[in-house]
Design a protein around this nucleic acid. Structure first.
Lengths: 150, 150
DNA sequence: GGAAACCGGACGCACTTGGTCCTATTTGGA
DNA sequence: TCCAAATAGGACCAAGTGCGTCCGGTTTCC
């Protein structure tokens, strides 16, 4: 199915929820975000921890703490979120300079040929921002993904 | 990792191996293909079975049988191979008209917004042919994937 | 008639994913 | 000063799924 992990999917929803708080200039705690997004609390907490490690959100500890967006949604490319949860974007195990993982490396006729494809996918995902996915309110004109269809 | 299944990876290698036989206008049996591709026989057999169901290769039964390409490599888009092994190309479970799978469907702010992204990925993979991946011999100019980088 | 080869399905191991929970640390307020 | 609220980080277990293998059946050529 070429699917990305559920956590990545959740992350987009969580970021979209955080954006609403951002416009009110306040932080949101995990239970509040869970309520707003319709996801379970522990799951939301896990997603936010990972997003925090990636620098996409900022966590404020202590009482009256919570989470805040690290940047505006339209400044967060979808690829950044995917990399944070699923690791480097690559369709196959044999990427770029990586070697050793493939047993038939020497005779492989496909060696190195996947790189342009991987780059194309990466670029496509880098030109879509979370704002494009978070609803029409923040959408500046045509989403970048549509341009790629031409 | 946004990765596609190993079988899909193998399929490209197997198709590239079959192409060499095609140019000699003969069929190849599984053991021969396995030897040429450096993969285990049962695995190659499984890959060819699936490729046959998808119509990408043609199986000739009986003694002196074997496999033959259904079309030329440059007429096989990469997306066809991926669909045969991984199913429909979609980054998330909530695609197009599909409904019911998501518990937070009603309140999901991302609903329907993934579709353009999925289409972009599909298009990118549809414009790359197996010939582009199978080595420089059959490559007509710049691979389509590189064009998408612009 | 026998051998060679594909066809279809079933099985089992192993890895990854996911959801959950626990403890430590930090901070604000009574 | 103490307590409550909240994040940080890691460990853990269960479920699903991918993947390699194998077996019986069928077809075709010699």
């Amino acid at each position: 199915m070429l699917r990305l992990s559920k956590l990545t999917d959740y992350a987009v929803v969580v970021l979209a929820g955080l954006d609403r708080a951002e416009r009110n200039r306040r932080v949101m705690a995990v239970p509040e975000i869970a309520l707003a997004s319709g996801l379970a609390e522990p799951t939301v907490a896990k997603v936010l921890k990972i997003l925090g490690q990636a620098g996409l959100v900022e966590g404020l500890r202590g009482a009256r703490g919570g989470y805040r967006l690290g940047r505006a949604l339209h400044e967060i490319p979808l690829s950044d979120v995917i990399v944070a949860f699923d690791g480097p974007i690559a369709l196959t195990a044999c990427v770029d300079g990586a070697s050793g993982g493939c047993e038939a490396e020497a005779m492989c006729p496909v060696r190195g040929r996947w790189d342009p494809v991987n780059r194309a996918i990466r670029d496509a995902l880098a030109h879509v921002t979370i704002a494009d996915l978070a609803g029409p309110a923040r959408c500046h004109g045509t989403p970048a993904a549509l341009v790629l269809n031409a």
